[in-house]
Design a protein around this nucleic acid. Structure first.
Length: 340
DNA sequence: AAACGTACAAGTATACTGGA
DNA sequence: GTCCAGTATACTTGTACGTT
């Protein structure tokens, strides 16, 4: 049995020849000038490049139904823990490895964020900045990935500065201990709390959007915060709940359903860039700063080992991210069910 | 244990070359 | 000169691991 690789004329096949035959199950990486990934594999192929191993069971990118990237070193999902029990990266949905730069992320997003910040990378989305981030798209759109990283609360301030890294390297080499060391760790902790409020905001919201997005949020929010394992783990006080929900009211999530005319029935109104709207946005931004500042103080005042310690504020912000996801789903649901 | 940085193997994009 | 297949190289990504 043989398949034929169809060359569409507008592009070319990468790392494989259209005129050659290849064995079944071969992975091929291809690209076309017109960027159309839905090429048709109608033939079997034989690999010539060492990097492409035959019979690996993965289709070339853009071809599989799942849309997962062509694996580098494919991870074996451990059988002990089900996917549902694993904590997922709030950026791409991959398995999270812990809190990195103030958000629950996978190692990939952690590295991506660090590298992007370190080199002050500026990316450009080819689709207008509306890419839905998942394990496939994270490699396709750096701009949206970085934006999502920031939106979920990842903070550049949590990275060590160049100077701090240098002194760390020096210490590693020369074992110089003392004053600077404390400074480094202190800065790390301080930056994730006191400097946070002004940095978290991605506010381009307007009052109508805020009011609309708030509808249902309170209900969903309390449901989430009352969720037994969540609330008992964090022991969220009513004061903190109030600040969290207020902060949500004054935030904008770029991944939420877009407030534009392409979504009939949307609760939102189109974004405006006129002066009044910009002033409103600025005002809202200040409000959110204030709320988050107050929340960080409340967290600081109540922080103890049993209540999550110094990372409590970050964890609460993580809950905020979950609230946003819930809101997103809620809006999608209500859009399908008129009357809500 | 958690969260950071670093090193490195492997994947991907792009530039370049040579033949038809 | 143009197109295309193949190769070289630079850049990016994700994982493993050491350090604090």
């Amino acid at each position: 049995m043989f398949l034929i690789l169809e060359n569409r004329g507008t592009g070319y096949i990468y790392q494989a020849s259209a005129t050659q035959t290849y064995p079944v199950g071969t992975c091929l990486s291809m690209r076309f000038v017109d960027n159309d990934k839905k090429y048709k594999i109608t033939s079997m192929c034989q690999l010539r490049r060492k990097s492409l191993e035959p019979h690996c069971g993965v289709l070339a990118q853009g071809f599989g139904a799942g849309g997962l990237p062509l694996g580098r070193r494919m991870r074996v999902v451990s059988g002990g823990k089900g996917r549902g029990q694993e904590e997922l990266c709030v950026v791409c949905g991959d398995k999270a490895s812990g809190y990195h730069y103030n958000a629950l992320t996978c190692e990939g997003c952690k590295g991506f964020f660090r590298r992007s910040v370190t080199k002050k990378a500026v990316y450009q989305c080819k689709s207008g900045g509306g890419c839905e981030m998942d394990m496939y798209m994270r490699r396709k759109c750096q701009d949206c990935r970085l934006r999502k990283c920031r939106a979920v609360g990842m903070l550049a301030e949590c990275l060590l500065t160049e100077v701090q890294c240098q002194s760390k390297r020096l210490r590693k080499g020369g074992k110089v201990r003392g004053h600077k060391e404390e400074e480094n760790t202190d800065n790390k902790r301080v930056s994730s709390t006191s400097r946070l409020p002004g940095q978290v905001i991605e506010s381009r919201a307007d009052p109508v959007c805020l009011l609309a997005s708030g509808t249902g949020m309170a209900i969903l929010g309390f449901d989430l915060l009352d969720f037994p394992d969540q609330s008992s783990l964090l022991s969220i006080s009513s004061l903190e709940v109030m600040f969290l929900l207020s902060a949500q009211q004054f935030s904008h999530n770029p991944t939420s359903p877009s407030p534009d005319a392409t979504h009939p029935g949307s609760l939102f109104v189109p974004r405006s860039t006129d002066r009044a709207s910009l002033q409103a946005a600025s005002c809202i931004e200040r409000m959110q700063e204030l709320i988050l500042d107050l929340l960080s103080r409340v967290c600081g005042a109540q922080a103890g080992a049993a209540r999550g310690g110094p990372q409590r504020f970050g964890r609460l912000l993580g809950r905020l991210t979950e609230l946003r996801t819930l809101r997103h789903n809620y809006l999608l649901l209500t859009r399908r069910q008129p009357g809500h």
